[in-house]
Amino acid sequence: KRPMNAFMVWSKIERRKIMEQSPDMHNAEISKRLGKRWKMLKDSEKIPFIREAERLRLKHMADYPDYK
C-alpha cells in the first residue's frame, strides 16, 4: 500500500469533520467538496500536510525498502 500524499493526509481529517456535520451526505459528494476545498487552500496552509506526507513517505521507504 502506498503512503498517503498531502491531499490524502488533509482529506482524512476533513472528511471526518464533514461526516460529523452531514452524516447523510454521499461519499462522492464529500470527495467533490474536499477536492474543491483543497484547491482553494493557500500553499502556506498545505505545508503541514506536505510535511506529514513526506514523513510518511520516508517511513514507508524505511519499512518497505523493496517497494517499487
Rank of each mutant, 00 (worst) to 15 (best):
K1D: 15
K1S: 12
K1C: 11
K1M: 06
R2P: 12
R2I: 14
R2C: 13
R2V: 14
R2F: 13
P3D: 15
P3H: 11
P3Y: 11
P3E: 13
P3G: 12
M4E: 12
M4Y: 08
M4Q: 08
M4R: 01
M4V: 12
M4I: 14
N5Y: 05
N5L: 03
N5K: 00
N5W: 05
A6P: 05
A6D: 02
A6Y: 01
A6H: 04
F7M: 04
F7I: 01
F7P: 00
F7L: 00
F7R: 05
F7G: 02
M8E: 15
M8I: 10
M8N: 10
M8K: 06
V9W: 06
V9N: 02
V9R: 00
V9H: 06
V9E: 13
W10N: 04
W10S: 00
W10C: 00
W10P: 04
S11M: 06
S11P: 04
S11K: 06
S11D: 00
K12D: 13
K12L: 12
K12H: 12
K12E: 15
K12N: 13
I13S: 06
I13L: 08
I13M: 10
I13P: 03
E14I: 02
E14R: 00
E14C: 04
R15G: 06
R15Q: 10
R15E: 14
R16P: 11
R16T: 09
R16D: 12
R16M: 03
K17S: 05
K17F: 05
K17E: 00
K17D: 04
K17N: 06
K17W: 00
I18H: 00
I18M: 07
M19D: 03
M19G: 05
M19Q: 09
E20D: 12
E20A: 07
E20W: 04
E20L: 08
E20T: 09
Q21G: 08
Q21E: 14
Q21D: 08
Q21F: 03
S22T: 11
S22Y: 14
S22M: 07
S22H: 13
P23D: 02
P23W: 00
P23N: 01
P23E: 05
P23I: 01
D24C: 06
D24W: 07
D24A: 11
M25L: 11
M25W: 02
M25N: 06
H26K: 15
H26C: 15
H26S: 15
N27M: 07
N27A: 14
N27V: 09
N27R: 07
A28I: 09
A28Y: 07
A28E: 11
A28D: 15
E29M: 01
I30F: 02
I30P: 02
I30C: 07
I30N: 03
S31A: 14
S31V: 11
S31L: 09
S31D: 14
S31H: 08
S31I: 11
S31Q: 09
K32G: 08
K32N: 09
K32T: 07
K32W: 10
R33A: 15
R33C: 14
L34A: 00
L34K: 00
L34H: 01
L34I: 04
G35Y: 14
G35A: 14
G35S: 15
G35R: 14
K36R: 12
K36P: 01
K36I: 15
R37A: 14
R37I: 10
W38C: 03
W38H: 01
K39Y: 03
K39T: 07
K39M: 09
K39P: 01
M40D: 14
M40T: 12
L41D: 01
L41P: 00
K42Y: 05
K42R: 08
D43G: 06
S44M: 07
S44T: 09
E45A: 06
E45Y: 06
E45W: 05
K46R: 06
I47H: 05
I47E: 15
I47F: 08
I47A: 13
P48K: 03
P48A: 03
P48H: 07
P48V: 08
F49C: 00
F49I: 03
F49S: 04
F49P: 03
I50A: 07
I50Y: 12
I50E: 15
I50T: 06
I50H: 12
R51I: 11
E52A: 05
E52P: 00
E52M: 06
E52L: 04
E52V: 06
A53P: 05
A53Q: 03
A53L: 02
A53C: 02
A53V: 02
A53H: 02
E54M: 01
E54Y: 07
E54L: 04
E54C: 06
R55P: 01
R55N: 11
L56N: 07
L56T: 08
L56A: 06
R57N: 15
R57Q: 11
R57C: 09
R57M: 11
R57E: 15
R57F: 06
L58E: 07
L58D: 14
L58Y: 09
L58F: 07
L58Q: 13
K59Y: 09
K59E: 13
K59M: 13
K59V: 13
K59N: 13
K59F: 10
H60G: 14
H60Y: 12
H60Q: 15
H60E: 15
H60R: 09
H60P: 10
M61Y: 11
M61K: 09
M61E: 13
M61Q: 13
M61V: 13
M61P: 12
A62G: 13
A62Y: 10
A62F: 09
P65G: 01
P65H: 03
D66F: 08
D66E: 15
D66L: 09
Y67T: 12
Y67C: 12
Y67G: 14
K68F: 14
K68G: 10
K68I: 13
K68S: 11
